[in-house]
Amino acid sequence: MEIVKILGIGLISVILIIVIKQYKPEFSVYISLIAGVIIILLIIDKITGIIGLLTALSTKVSINREFLEILLKITGIAILTEFAVSICKDLGESSIANKIDLGGKILIISISIPIISSLLESVIEILP
């Protein structure tokens, strides 16, 4: 049922953007920003459900709690950077979009250093 709301908001904002673009081109940016924010806020409660399921499963399967935290952080960073990159690309500022993308990637790598190190340790243990 959520999908109808998301589609409605997306289509209405596209129509509004076309109308506004003739008079004031800069307002189309605000409309696309607000539409993006609203759609993400709509799906946020679904994401919390998924995260709850993940944490519940992780306690059962005894996955290291810290890895799940890092995984969630990475998804959060990915969502936000993708949001900003698509807005910048809409405006034609692809250089800024690439910088934001680069920053997001670097942050993700820097956050996932513990995972990489623990992976290496386990590999070294396995090797004779």
Binding site: V37, I40, L41, L72
Partner: peptide
Amino acid sequence: IVLTMVIKEISSLFNTVRTIFNL
């Protein structure tokens, strides 16, 4: 006026995402 509304919405988005993924 429009900028203040947009910034308010974006800050609420960032806060929700930060609290959910505890960034």
